[in-house]
């Protein structure tokens, strides 16, 4: 199987302080991978590196056969202005950006696809509601609908299930498994071990440096988790080496 994403001696960080250090591993094409690790382990930073919004301090990321718009990225929820008066339909339709760009028209066919995506995440009937009137779970459903329309080869999700209800989580996991079935590569930063064990075949454990990467049952062990916490604490006590505190 061809490699989709390769991290080569990758160091990422902010203002020259590394948050991810000397990462050397590969994500297989079509794999469904959970990224886990203690707080401050560099999980979100790694996704930002993949989107290209953060340039490596050292090393590089090899992304084969993918253009920038083949990558879809769902950041943590806080970045959306929910008081902005935009409807669910309009927000979701922006997933078509690759096709419509800044000026293109949303034709009848495309509108049908937008409605299909909204129905697929269980938001039928909410099309004309303002995003400010939605609950956290409903917003997340709308953002998944937008991801569906982005039709990306590589999907990056940062804490997609934080602060949402169980039913929504189950539905959204269904969408992720559908992507996996379609052969897309999915990387998700997650906290909950149970979710990772039951739905994510591969796991990458990070504590600034790589702790372990492989099949979930071999990676998500108590020894590895203990080691990851220790590595992060060690980093926190020597901030001149590792940068941001682990808290």
């Amino acid at each position: 199987m061809s490699t989709s994403v390769a991290f080569k001696n990758l160091t990422l960080g902010y203002e020259r302080l590394p948050a991810v250090q000397q990462l050397d591993t590969e994500i297989k094409q079509g794999s469904l991978t959970a990224i886990v690790g203690p707080n401050g382990a560099g999980k979100s930073t790694l996704l930002k590196g993949l989107t290209g919004s953060l340039s490596p301090i050292e090393g590089h990321i090899e992304v084969s056969n993918l253009r920038a718009d083949d990558i879809a990225y769902l950041p943590q929820q806080s970045e959306i202005d929910r008081s902005f008066p935009i409807s669910v339909l309009d927000l979701v339709a922006m997933g078509l950006w690759r096709e419509i760009g800044a000026f293109g028209q949303v034709g009848r066919k495309m509108r049908g696809r937008v409605e299909q995506a909204i129905a697929a995440v269980g938001l039928r009937g909410f099309e004309s509601r303002a995003i400010g009137s939605l609950s956290g779970g409903q917003i997340q459903r709308a953002l998944f609908a937008r991801l569906l329309l982005q039709d990306a080869e590589l999907v990056l999700l940062d804490e997609p299930f934080s602060a949402i209800d169980m039913k929504t989580m189950a539905d959204l996991i269904g969408i992720i498994e559908r992507w996996h079935g379609e052969g897309r590569t999915v990387l998700a930063v997650l906290h909950d071990d149970t979710t990772v064990r039951s739905h994510f075949p591969e796991t990458l454990m990070l504590a600034r440096e790589l702790v372990a990467h492989g099949p979930t049952e071999t990676v998500l062990t108590s020894e590895n988790q203990f080691r990851a916490r220790q590595m992060c604490e060690a980093c926190a006590s020597t901030p001149h080496v590792c940068g941001k505190s682990a808290a």
Partner: peptide, 23 residues
């Protein structure tokens, strides 16, 4: 009217706009 769509997106979800376009 020309910059309407990117402007709305820049207001509502700037991170998404940066991820899909250089505008």
């Amino acid at each position: 009217a020309l910059i309407y769509r990117p402007l709305v997106l820049e207001c509502a979800d700037p991170q998404f706009l940066r991820s899909v376009s250089k505008l």
